[in-house]
Design a protein around this nucleic acid. Sequence first.
DNA 1: TGAGCGCATTAACCCAAGTTAATAATCTGG
DNA 2: CCAGATTATTAACTTGGGTTAATGCGCTCA
Lengths: 178, 178
Amino acid sequence: MNFEDLVKKVGSPIVCPKQRHVFRQGDDDDNLYLLQQGLLKAYYIGNDGRETIKSFIQPDNVIGNLGAAYAHEACTFNVVALQDSQLIRIPFKQLIDAVKDSHEVAQKVLAILMSLSIKKERREYEFLSLSAEERYRAFCDTSPQLLESVTQSDIALYLGVTPVGLSRIKKRVHQNNK
Amino acid sequence: MNFEDLVKKVGSPIVCPKQRHVFRQGDDDDNLYLLQQGLLKAYYIGNDGRETIKSFIQPDNVIGNLGAAYAHEACTFNVVALQDSQLIRIPFKQLIDAVKDSHEVAQKVLAILMSLSIKKERREYEFLSLSAEERYRAFCDTSPQLLESVTQSDIALYLGVTPVGLSRIKKRVHQNNK
DNA sequence: TGAGCGCATTAACCCAAGTTAATAATCTGG
DNA sequence: CCAGATTATTAACTTGGGTTAATGCGCTCA
């Protein structure tokens, strides 16, 4: 069976209007979600109650709590729709089982995991090696579409600064570029 | 074929004395390395020439530049031995090919990727949501063995602060704990 | 159409961590 | 066993970003 067919067979289409959560921290959700349309954000609420943003998810990407799905732990983060979204829910276990039976599915699952890994690797690098200002510049370069569709406050929490901090960084950057 | 046998068949044992590099930033190395004995560090040299540390690798763990291995790109980081080490080099392509032929290998490769993903997820969370002092506390809790075997300077670069900064954090933490 | 809400900007003040440099402690090789 | 190198600590000064709070600017919807 190929991956497309598998998704058709074991996936359920989900409609997720703006503001609604796909899943929440603490949930027991072992699904993977394939975003077809819309925009999602994955975020943490820390012990101190503060929000930080793990990632924005754009169409044709996959989101899910791997730890939760693979090792049956509780989700460590939340996912909410920033725009009306359509996704397909795929029970992770079904994917794993299909890996056994189909090389094509195995390759595709591998590709998904690799792409997630590579993204996280880049993000790790940015936090380790770049200043907040450099992270902002990198974000502008690589994700100009998100600059349009996401509030500045959310961009700040994604970059690891406060909204006030990001406002200052922007001012600095745009001054120096003129 | 099971995973053990595959490793025996396609893996080459490597001896890596202290200070020697396993691979370097810019190399074209599509192998995975399984550490059997010793201690490695994976680190970046940024554009400004500064070092930052991506991870420490302890026995029974795997290291390799996934992006380089999977997509045939140049390595984005360096790996060097902090202690005399023994590892097994496994061409990534052989693993991928074996995924097609063996469910057991597929499961194992999946498990390796999941464990890498989960580690990166935790690290991402720590950079996003914790202060440098909290990251240091977390490090002491989760990796007390590394506190012994790694210089303070390397711990600092791993935590995303300067050695001077870590010295101050330590002082603060141990004062308050007394 | 206007009251109220959320978002972005700005200012004032504070603090954690960076930078540089000096000193002390430790390790290492000849 | 010593000399030089590496590592850790401490101090003095600087700076980026946090915090709080005030202000202004659109939204929305009643």
